[in-house]
């Protein structure tokens, strides 16, 4: 992923994470998202829907645990979806 794309994605992602999942303490790029106690099943769906609308994509990954493992892995997934 190009760094300039990552730079554009990260602020939007952080904003969505805080607003939809109250993951205010989990916005560092390498920090674990999926294992955060704040990311219960409803917060995950909220997050998925917000990301879908922000980036105009459908998130239907079978391995959501890997996609949402960290902020970095999430950005990589979104970048792949947008490129596809």
């Amino acid at each position: 992923m190009h760094d300039d794309t990552r730079i554009r994605c990260l602020p939007a992602l952080r904003s969505i994470l805080v607003q939809e999942s109250e993951l205010a303490g989990v916005v560092e790029r390498g920090a674990a998202l999926f294992d955060s106690p704040s990311l219960d099943s409803l917060a995950l769906v909220n997050l998925v829907v917000a990301l879908e609308n922000e980036f105009a994509i459908q998130i239907d990954a079978e391995d959501l645990e890997q996609v949402f493992a960290t902020l970095d892995s999430l950005v990589d997934y979104l970048d792949g979806k947008r490129a596809g």
Partner: peptide, 10 residues
């Protein structure tokens, strides 16, 4: 196994 909108629609 879980509810994710795109998975439900697929």
């Amino acid at each position: 196994p879980r509810f994710i909108p795109a998975e439900l629609m697929a």
